[in-house]
Design a protein around this nucleic acid. Sequence first.
DNA 1: CTTTTGACGCGTA
DNA 2: CTACGCGCCAAAA
Length: 125
Amino acid sequence: MGHQSVPGRLEDGVYQRVYRLVAKIPSGRVATYGQIASMVPGCTARQVGYALAATPDGIDIPWHRVINARGEVSTRSGGGESGQKKLLADEGIVFLEGRVRLQDYGWEGPDWRWLEKNGYRVFPD
DNA sequence: CTTTTGACGCGTA
DNA sequence: CTACGCGCCAAAA
């Protein structure tokens, strides 16, 4: 049964890990690229952005709930940032001066038990 | 195998 | 506030 995590040879790859984690961000909350990266082994903030940029059309993940560390929507998001802001505002997220207050809307992340069970990093070393 | 391509983060000036 | 540099690295071609 090789279901243990194998560094360097993950069955799904880093991008798939990112997608699964992003899929758990609840409506009305946001996560930052760096935050997601801190939970995915071998991943950096940039990789998260690249992963989302490479998201195949048709897969249903809340990509719009991932923003940068300053609480702003990235300018190169597909289709324009206004669309992403609209999606977030539709979930009740308030923008002040074009920013989201992470202290109010930042996601705390999944339960550590879920992280451990699915091979993510529980602590950011 | 090599090269290109990027939704970032953070320190510094 | 702006501007710049550099670290970081998987995936696709």
